[in-house]
């Protein structure tokens, strides 16, 4: 455990890079959105029509962290004689910690948004209609688990680059595109596309935003683990 904590402390040496970037982004996004709504000042539009996509900034800005960890911090940590095992455990802890922080933090900001009637300008940044939960912790799951799925997926992509280089990324991209095309073709030919859409639409919101992303975490996490165990520097 000492080794894992040591590796984690190195990963957190620049918290501004590893943890804070999505929070800067959502903070700036809220400022811009509230500023725009305050300037426009039109309060006649219904609340349902005042939805923004600012939450995407939070997720989009967290994409670069894991590839940075895999390709820059991993070789440096190995030079400092951190074991692969310790680095992998520390990264898994970091991903989990970031997901918990994202879930609880965004759920708290959501409470503030509701309490301030949309940041005093009736805007919807976090309290989006399709992901609203009454329970605080359920809301935290809806925000946090997709964060974990996204960071695990980007960690996997970073590990692919670490092990296979540029060619690996190219092969991964082509492979995903090919599999996606085959799946879509099969769904189209069997007239099943509607059924798939209906299936996800009929699921409880928690299943769509917490359970199925967990399956992605397991899938990408396993791939990441296998690759990083073999990674050389």
């Amino acid at each position: 455990m000492t080794e894992t904590i040591k590796a984690l402390r190195i990963q957190l040496l620049k918290p501004g890079v590893t943890v804070a970037v999505p929070w800067y982004s959502i903070g700036i996004a809220i400022l811009i959105v509230t500023g725009l709504f305050a300037v426009v000042g039109d309060t006649t539009a219904p609340y349902s029509g005042r939805t923004t996509g600012a939450l995407c900034a939070f997720y989009a800005s967290s994409i670069g962290v894991q590839p940075w960890l895999m390709n820059q911090l991993f070789p440096f940590s190995m030079a400092l004689s951190v074991t692969r095992r310790a680095f992998i455990r520390a990264t898994a802890l970091l991903i989990l910690g970031e997901a918990v922080l994202a879930g609880l933090g965004l759920a708290l900001l959501n409470k503030i948004e509701i309490a301030t009637h949309g940041w005093f300008v009736h805007t919807r940044v976090l309290n989006l209609p399709h992901i609203h939960q009454d329970d605080f912790f359920a809301q935290a799951l809806v925000y946090g688990v997709p964060t974990m799925a996204l960071t695990t997926a980007t960690a996997f992509v970073g590990a692919v680059f670490r092990v296979f280089g540029q060619f690996g990324l190219w092969a991964l991209g082509v492979g995903i595109a090919f599999v996606s095309a085959v799946v879509v073709a099969i769904l189209m030919l069997t007239h099943s596309m509607g059924h798939v859409g209906h299936f996800f639409a009929s699921q409880p919101m928690l299943a769509d935003f917490a359970l199925y992303p967990l399956a992605l975490v397991a899938l990408f996490g396993t791939g990441w683990l296998v690759l990083m165990s073999r990674a050389r520097v």
Binding site: K6, R9, I10, L13, K14, V17, W68, Q72, L73, P75, F76, S77, A79, L80, S81, V82
Partner: peptide, 23 residues
Amino acid sequence: REAQRYPSNYKVREAFAAAAIAC
């Protein structure tokens, strides 16, 4: 190593801080 790689956005003192943690 020859051409040892460091995280590019690290400052010099941060590289030493990481070494202080590890060594």
